[in-house]
Design a protein around this nucleic acid. Structure first.
Lengths: 327, 327
DNA sequence: CTGAAAGCGCTTACAG
DNA sequence: CTGAAAGCGCTTACAG
């Protein structure tokens, strides 16, 4: 492969001048420039960006840490991030944790080893301490999920408020036995759960442990959830907060098989407003998240930190309850 | 940031020895190694991978070029590729073309500039000639879609056969007026279209231009397609090959609004077998693609070329027609 | 088992 | 407007 030295030799100019032409440095005559670029083309020369990085210290690569790219929520988030990054001259390395802490550490290592300029994390499988340092120096930005330490900056929607609104909608519609699904199994830092409790308490309803379904993430979990719900028999809930549209889709699609009418026997509220929500039958009432805005903003925050620019002005990430046929 | 020279100074050893310890070179005594690693830890030293790359010539980064990451087909493909790449020590840079040829060229440039070791392309917006050279030297591998030059290697399913089987299934069920949807608008190199024609001709049916719907890609396109179909009135087709599950989902979800019963008034066949296919009502008959196998295999082929290893042994990428309620 | 030195392909003060 | 030289942070023959 041709190097800058080859171009210098061929044109009879110095390496310095070639480099200047490459970097649009003003002090190169147009005639020289033309000679240089023609020669580069002829030699099929492209500057080695690794060498440039070693001088410039920047790879123009940002990592995006997500759990699963096949989760549409993350696919849309990555889309928004990639678009913004591209506009600002950065490329996106996708890092799936698959919920494996070891995988996540591989990516942190890439940052330590300078293979990445920065990282956008959507959640973390590891202890805060490990990444705290990078959060503070601005090379990691958290987006979407809370982590242990509430003091660290994170870009997120108001999960509590969004869930509160969804549950309140169910209550106003007359539903009283409202089940709650979550992707994990702990109450700590589950802000959606807080919103759920707040709405219940406004109607003087008590939390019922039987109505709490943990580890519900995908369509299969949703189908399973409907079976769990039906198994409660006379105690069967009359509504369910599905925590995600995929879980909601599983519940809805399984209903005919179990003779459950939605929303008559069971109302369903999703979360995310993925394209699937609209084509389900009945179509799914759900909480729309401003994914595009969140992804773009998160990318903006990270990149401006990396470039040492002024941060973008804060935006409000408003969720909206989209009411369809399942409530 | 600490460098290898700092570690050398602190330990009183030479840079060479530090480097050897780092690379697990045999000729370093265990005692020296321990001293070195302890010192590295103490100094919070991590080898700069950019400098390593400049020596080693390899970034361990592969680009994956797709049109839209929000298309579930590509999300699943990227998932499979990322998993395989990770196993082999590579990371994945996601490159969305958004169907913009300029964007695609940016990524080819990254390859030229050595920021990427190789690229996996799922289709191309540009002329073959530009990427042909890299295809031949093994740094680009095509996967999923045909491009102009049939002689170039590409990893793909048998689109023609898969479509032939889907259409034949419709014909055997008694449908005769079968509409065809495609994401583009040209017949050239549309192997699915060839399969469609082949099945029709076996039943002595002629291709009807009115039954050809171009540029159908997403749910909205599907909804629009049903309107187009109904607008054909007495010539209305009795079945439609939707070309993708999302288009199928749009057709199915729009049907109740137009008083169309599926499959009685209109049968629908999708393509991909995305999770959505199963939760639609009625559930969608579709062609299952072996995305995981294809992604893993494509990554394997590219990486073995990059590492100059023996290529993986060829596998057969079989599609399966999944018959559900829409036919 | 260890080290001095060259070199990977660039950029950038410094000097003219 | 142009060039010689140092240096980015490593690895690797070569020599001992």
């Amino acid at each position: 492969m041709a190097t800058i030295a080859d171009v210098a030799k061929k044109t009879g100019l110095s390496i310095t001048t070639i480099s200047r032409a490459l970097n649009n440095h003003p002090y190169v005559s147009d005639k020289t420039k033309k000679l240089i670029f023609d020669t580069m083309e002829e030699m099929d020369f492209y500057p080695n960006s690794v060498a440039q990085q070693l001088r410039g210290k920047s790879t123009k690569l940002i990592g995006v840490v997500i759990s699963y790219i096949t989760n549409p929520f993350f696919a849309y988030l990555v889309d928004a991030i990639e678009r913004e990054a591209y506009e600002r001259g950065f490329q996106v390395v996708v890092l799936q944790t698959l919920e494996d802490p070891k995988r996540e550490l591989t990516f942190i290592d890439m940052l330590k080893k300078k293979q990445l300029d920065g990282i956008l994390m959507t959640n973390t499988e590891n202890d805060t301490e490990i990444i705290k340092k990078y959060l503070l120096d601005g090379r990691i930005v958290m987006c979407n999920r809370y982590i242990g330490n509430e003091k660290l900056p994170i870009i997120h929607i108001d999960e509590k408020q969004a869930t509160y609104e969804a549950i309140k909608h169910l209550l106003e519609k007359g539903y009283r036995k409202i089940a709650y699904c979550t992707g994990s199994n702990y109450h700590k830092n589950d802000h959606r759960y807080e919103g759920y409790l707040q709405a219940l308490s406004e109607y003087n309803l008590e939390f019922d442990e039987d109505y709490y379904f943990s580890y519900r993430l995908n369509i299969k979990d949703g189908q399973r959830t409907l079976h769990d719900i039906v198994a409660l028999k006379e105690k069967m809930p009359d509504a369910v907060f599905a925590n995600g549209d995929e879980v909601g889709a599983g519940i809805i699609s399984e209903a005919p098989k179990l003779g459950i009418k939605i929303p008559k026997d069971l109302a369903v509220v999703g979360f995310d407003d993925q394209p699937i929500a609209e084509v389900l039958h009945p179509s799914l009432t759900t909480v729309r998240q401003p994914i595009k805005e969140m992804g773009k903003y998160a990318a903006d925050v990270l990149i401006s930190k990396l470039l040492d620019e002024d941060p973008p002005k804060p935006i409000e990430l408003r969720t909206t309850l989209i009411i369809r046929e399942t409530t």
